[in-house]
Design a protein around this nucleic acid. Structure first.
Length: 110
DNA sequence: GCCAGGGCGCTAA
DNA sequence: ATTAGCGCCCTGG
């Protein structure tokens, strides 16, 4: 596996239930050069179905789910079951639900 | 709020 | 080997 992917997964695992993170945020926290947000999407897409990485907690910077209709409804259902609310336009209020880590524990957790 | 353009790495043609 | 889109984001208008 590409080392960047491992770094991405390590960070995503720390996003708690009931909160979300953005692709750009994960890229930044993962230490990718220049915050390559797009690569986070590829890393999550490459996850095995039985993975323990909470991929569903990563959404785009506008608070929207960035998947086709089928995948979006799956992701939304899981998030809703974790307590994340969506507005009538299908968006999450990031001011309310975005993960804001106080301590960067994932930096040492290998 | 919208749209366009640039940057980036991956993947399927 | 080349091209064309993308689970994106930033800046600028």
């Amino acid at each position: 596996m590409h080392p960047h992917y491992a770094a991405i997964y390590r960070v995503v695992r720390f996003v708690p239930k009931g909160r979300v993170a953005t692709y750009g945020q994960i890229a930044l926290l993962s230490g990718l050069p220049h915050g390559r947000a797009r690569q986070v999407g590829y890393a999550l897409h490459a996850l095995r179905p039985d993975s323990k990485v909470p991929w569903q907690r990563v959404i785009n910077a506008r608070g929207e789910i960035s998947l086709d209709a089928e995948g979006a409804s799956r992701q939304r259902q899981i998030l809703a079951s974790e307590g994340v609310e969506f507005d009538e336009r299908g968006r999450v209020d990031l001011r309310r639900y975005q993960w804001r880590p106080r301590h960067m524990r994932f930096l040492t957790a290998v």
